Simulated scan of single mutants.
Amino acid sequence: MKLTLASIFTCFIFLALYGQQTNDSSEKVTYTLAALYKTNIDYYGQVTEEKLPYILLNGTVQLPFGMYFSASSYKFLNYGSGIAGTDLSVGYDYGFSDRFSTGIMYTHSFYPSNSPLLQASLTSNINGSASYNWTWFKSALNIDYAFGHDSDVFLTLSHSKDINLGNLFTEAEQISFEPSLELIAGTRNYYETYIRAKNQRGQEMGNGKPPDNPGNSGDKIEYVPSKSFSMLSYNMKLPISYSYGNYLAELSYQLSLIAPSEEGFKRAQSFFGIAFYYQF
């Protein structure tokens, strides 16, 4: 595993240096600030028993040759009083042509010890991506290796179509709609740790100890997850965005259908979100 990780980061450094030499050095550094609200937090379409609406703040610095650095923090609106999690990422994107592009990213996450998140045992993630623009739509393939207390692998295949809906008043505006379909497969070793942590919180409540955070049902669930690679969920996303100058606002809806083989989750989940971006 150490050899594999070393190989990935060696490739990452090579691509970054190659991109720095081949891209136009006259391009400027860009900064993006974002704020997002979503009615529930999901992990590859899957959610916890407790509904966890949240807000997220993000800042990203994009260098001219394709490397970027990003930091995000989010807070649940109905669970606890502190920060629910923080993500720090470094990545590199490279476009081989107008149609084909690739990317690699490493993310490390920080969660509180009593986090109710499904992925709380997976504190690091390496993501590799490739996308191709066909004549009528765009296809993307993402491979994620998540590790920490447990380790899991996820594969996401998506197809999307960017539709320009024109503008309202001036040519500086743009309204766009980008529906997409995602098929997600992977392993679920993380779920065993999640259930154990949930049962532990339930036992503490049963012993008369106050919960660390409100909203936790404390229900005990006995479940041994399959360690095999299988379908996890099918997602449909319907985002519509409005941009003007350096500003962009987006409304989104997501429908996730959980694979029948995945026990412990509701079969269908709906999510609504709103996001604002500013780039300079």
Rank of each mutant, 00 (worst) to 15 (best):
Y191L: 08
I175T: 02
F229N: 00
E204W: 07
P214L: 11
S176P: 00
F229W: 01
L183D: 01
I221Y: 11
K198M: 06
G206D: 12
G218M: 13
S226E: 13
E178A: 15
G186L: 05
T187N: 05
K227H: 14
D219M: 08
D212S: 14
Q203H: 13
Y190M: 01
N189H: 14
N213D: 13
S230L: 04
E192K: 09
T187M: 02
D212H: 09
I175W: 05
I195W: 03
K220N: 11
R188H: 00
E204A: 11
N213C: 06
T187H: 03
F177Q: 11
Y191M: 00
I184L: 09
P225L: 04
R201V: 08
E192A: 15
Y223H: 14
G186E: 06
K220I: 05
S228F: 08
E192V: 01
F229C: 03
G208C: 09
M231C: 08
N199F: 03
A197S: 14
N213R: 14
G208D: 05
Q203Y: 13
M205D: 04
N207W: 06
G218Q: 07
S230I: 07
G215R: 03
N189D: 12
V224P: 03
F229H: 03
S176V: 09
F229M: 10
A197M: 11
S176E: 12
F177M: 04
K209I: 13
I195T: 12
Y194M: 01
E204D: 15
Y190I: 03
G215S: 07
G206V: 02
K198H: 04
E182G: 03
I221Q: 12
V224Y: 11
D212F: 09
G186H: 01
P211Y: 01
S176Y: 14
E204C: 08
R196Y: 13
M231E: 12
S226C: 01
Y191F: 15
Y194F: 08
Y191H: 05
F177N: 02
G208V: 06
R188A: 05
S226D: 15
P211D: 10
Q203G: 10
G215P: 06
P211S: 10
D212R: 05
S217F: 01
T187F: 08
Y223W: 13
I221V: 13
G218S: 10
N207R: 07
Y190D: 01
A197K: 09
P179S: 07
K220V: 12
K227S: 15
N199G: 10
S230A: 10
Y223Q: 09
R188Y: 00
Y223M: 14
P210D: 11
K227W: 02
P214H: 08
G202Q: 01
K209L: 15
L181K: 08
G215F: 06
P211Q: 04
G218R: 02
